[in-house]
Amino acid sequence: MADFVREVMTPGVVAVRPDASLVEAAQLMRSQDIGDVVVADGQQVVGVLTDRDITVRAVADGDDPAVVSAESVCTRDPVLLAPDDPVGAAVALMRTHAVRRLPVVEDGLPVGMVSLGDLAEAQDPDSALAQISRAEPADRDAR
């Protein structure tokens, strides 16, 4: 079982500028096969934008994703972790703040993300959530 966030996090961060459109962010998510991006102003984490944020906070309201900015829809001032924080701290923060993903920051710079799936895989590899997290994405061309 992992002790520290660095052992369970997904290294590397995909980021967009605060003024990036939701279309830009969604295209980046699709090309990277991810469900979230960090919204960063320079090297400062401003927020986290998920595919669900785009859907529920913009598209469902009829907003034009080509003109709405990532910053206006993201979860601002996200809870952050450090790579040397205990895995238990990540679990507690997710529970307390009802979030599924947390950016990992070292020396002020985003270095990774830890997700609920990452934690499930580390703590109970045989759980349904861990198995789903490991599964390859569905073939888009098969639809």
Rank of each mutant, 00 (worst) to 15 (best):
F4P: 08
M9N: 02
T10E: 07
P11N: 07
G12M: 03
V14A: 14
V14D: 13
V16H: 07
R17K: 14
P18Q: 06
P18C: 03
D19I: 07
D19S: 13
A20R: 02
S21A: 07
L22H: 08
E24C: 04
A25L: 05
A25G: 00
M29A: 03
R30D: 12
S31N: 12
Q32I: 08
Q32N: 13
Q32L: 07
D33S: 15
D36T: 11
V37S: 00
V38M: 01
V38D: 01
V38Y: 00
V39E: 00
V39W: 00
A40R: 01
A40Y: 03
D41T: 00
D41V: 05
D41K: 11
G42Y: 07
Q43N: 15
Q44F: 14
G47L: 03
V48K: 03
L49H: 02
T50C: 01
D51F: 04
D51H: 05
D53M: 06
I54T: 01
T55Y: 12
V56G: 10
A58G: 08
V59L: 11
A60C: 01
G62T: 09
D63A: 15
D64Q: 02
D64F: 03
P65D: 07
P65G: 08
A66L: 10
V68K: 11
S69L: 06
S69T: 15
E71R: 15
S72T: 09
C74F: 05
T75G: 06
T75N: 04
R76S: 14
R76H: 12
P78D: 01
L81I: 08
A82Q: 15
A82F: 11
A82G: 15
P83H: 07
P83S: 07
D84Y: 08
G88H: 06
V91W: 07
A92Q: 13
A92W: 10
L93C: 10
M94D: 06
M94V: 05
R95Y: 14
R95I: 03
R100P: 04
R100W: 00
R100A: 05
R100F: 05
L102V: 03
L102K: 02
E106Y: 10
E106C: 08
D107W: 10
G108H: 01
P110T: 08
V111M: 06
V111H: 08
G112Q: 02
G112T: 04
S115H: 04
G117V: 04
D118A: 03
D118V: 05
L119V: 10
E121V: 12
E121H: 13
A122T: 04
A122G: 10
A122Q: 05
Q123R: 15
Q123N: 12
D124S: 11
D126T: 15
S127C: 02
A128W: 13
L129W: 12
L129P: 06
L129A: 15
A130N: 08
I132W: 12
R134M: 09
R134A: 13
A135Y: 11
A138S: 13
A138Q: 14
D139P: 09
A142L: 11
A142N: 12
A142M: 12
R143H: 14
